[in-house]
Design a protein around this nucleic acid. Sequence first.
DNA 1: GCCAGGCGTATACCG
DNA 2: ACCGGTATACGCCTGGCG
Length: 791
Amino acid sequence: MPFYRMKLVFWLLDINYEFADSEPEIRLWGISEEGRRVLVIHRGFYSYFYVVPKQDMVQETMEKIENMRGRLSQIVGTEIVERKYFGKPLKVIKVVCKDPAVLEDYAKKISKLEQVERCLEYDIRYSMKYMVDNEVSPCSWHELEVEEVKEGPNAQVDAVYLAKEVPRKVERESSPELRVLAFYPIYYSKRGSPKPERDPVIMIATLNSSGEAKIFVSNGDDSEVIRGFTEYVREYDPDVIVGFESNQKHLLYLKERSKTLGVDFSITRTGTEIHTSAYGHISITGRANVDLYDFVEDIAAIKLKTLENVAEYFGVERPRRIREYEIPSYWDDPSKRKELKEYAAECSRSIMGVASSILDFAIQLSELVGIPLDHVGTAAVGFKVEWYLIKEAHKRGELVPERVERPYRPYPGAIVLEPKPGRHEKIAVLDFKSMYPSIMIAYNVSPDTYVPPEEIKESEDYYIAPEVNHAFRKEPPGFYKEVLSELLKARNQIREKLKSLDPESPEYRALDARQKALKVIANASYGYSGWIGARWYIKPVAEATTAWGRATIRQTISIAKEMGLELIYGDTDSIFVKYEPDKVKSFLKSVGEKLRMEIKVDKVYERVIFTEAKKRYAGLLPDGRLDVVGLEVVRGDWPDVARKVQRRVLEIMLREEDLERAKQDAISYVREFISELREGKVPYDDLIIWKEITRPIEEYKARGAHIEAAKMMIEAGWELEPGDKVGFVILKGEGKLYQRASPYFMASIEDVDLEYYVRNQVIPAALRILSVFGVKEEDLLSEREGLMAFL
DNA sequence: GCCAGGCGTATACCG
DNA sequence: ACCGGTATACGCCTGGCG
């Protein structure tokens, strides 16, 4: 049968590569326009690195490299090309190698030549290099000529093709219909965290995007659970496998458990094993493994990232509360086992529900920054920004700098004003739109426009940053200026278009997700510029940006004062002023003209309360909502008793017009609450204090309650890693706080030192607000206690 | 021996 | 493994003190 060529249009889901028969090949996994699952094999793309010679020795370097080719046998070609490095045009030598694994080694060897300044781009992974070089993007459509392969590699797809050319990006209305499978496993462990070599997987609940739910339950041998799940994955053949904590926990567990049991767990499209890959994600070749947890980590509003809380945040079905340590009691009791099954099914539904909100965003982010869908969530923000920059650099012929180790040296940041403590009426919050990106654009602040003092020339025009005096060329537009202008422009265009769309339409959802992705990258760009790990790190870039930021806000303040606006507070790029509509209007206009930066009214508080502290306040919005910033209410390391009391106190103090009456109401409320608390009439969960473990336990220098609680958990068989949160309560008894801490599930309300919660949690949280209005601790205690406190 | 005050450590927040 | 600025709690040490 003759092979025939055809045009293929496909959407790129996953990419990997093989090095077989001394030939590297790229494998592009995707979905065709017709909805077929396809594998496109691209042979003949050889990776490369650049050699930057001293510019008067280009030919000489070339000859030296040619002479080395006998030893460096993987080199298949060398070529002198023109590129830019930090904006400066250079002649460089492109060294192409067959085996991508040798790049770093060859680059190191060639770097030793005295004619060579440095080597570049030897440290970019082959599959990423392929995409950047050919402008191929994950989660987008491409077309190319292909030839069908009949005797292809083992792959669970409808067709395998050989690429006959480089794929070209094409525009299509939307993403293909993806087959999504949500899964949630349950393990049985009586002693702490489940261990794959010891504890069985008693259930795996699944739900697919067609609404089919299946649950695999152990009948005493969990091999059946894993086998059933594995077979089902192969049968349903999902494009996306979505879970909650699947990267850190579940997939590794299932892999290890299948090893222990000697049962097959090949859920990839190649029949190979899943494996840990870039940025710590688990790669399921041919499919995209998406862990919702990776995306939820960035949502600051969810304090404790349980599936229950995440589902609640997204407004989807949430599972009933069964905690990990309770699982054996459900499994072992025949009358409760059914409930555990329902719980697992609920978890899979919650995951699918949350996924339908998050996947659009993940897809857009993946397409924007160029990191494949399965690890765009695990890559830290800095790397997301960086891949976006790498893609943009390639389009401009800019070489990608090496990653180098540097010492950490802090530099000054933003200005925060002292607030005027007390209760204020009608306060407008005015802020600059994307201040740092706007500064970088306005003053052409960029790694390639920065001119060190010794290179300053009379003939050139510079922007000079205040305070720090760093100089940036006015022309031509720098790398950051170009990239940021495009990001902001794209986002504004999308936001404009969204106004004309139905919020329920798929197009709206996709575009809204797109504008959020653009926002993430634009907002992180200043942080990236000051990150010592950044490839494009130039300290003066970050230093100048904050210096212009400080100057901007200072000038804004003085204009406000000149115009007679009453200033209440300000932080970085915002000022809070008494809202006088006409004055504010002309103020905005004046600032916009004088500073060449757009300032706008962000919101107007009907009423707002400031204490003496910076970065902490609460305001009442026109729609009646309470906006709490920085205070205990929004801090995850205070127990709910304190947070709830403070929220209620704020509500009373902001909603009641008569300040004196508000004060009395608040005092009565707190007093009543305290007496209930003392009687133990509060939910036990409201007493739990959650704190993050930020490092391995043995690395702590200080003693603290959460660390002691963590030690107790470890002793009981729980595994705790940096990033985990420990929930503990303070018990009655003698000694330091840390001597009286206990993991919450090892104690009950009868053991709890309620007096500690009164004195050290509820009262401080309430007084944080009330002390501004002259309320003292004794006002919140009973008369007798108050008197005693007074004496 | 007690304790107030200062300092260091730790966490989580703001923009 | 994104920045600096900030608040706050608790542990621990130290100097003053009949």
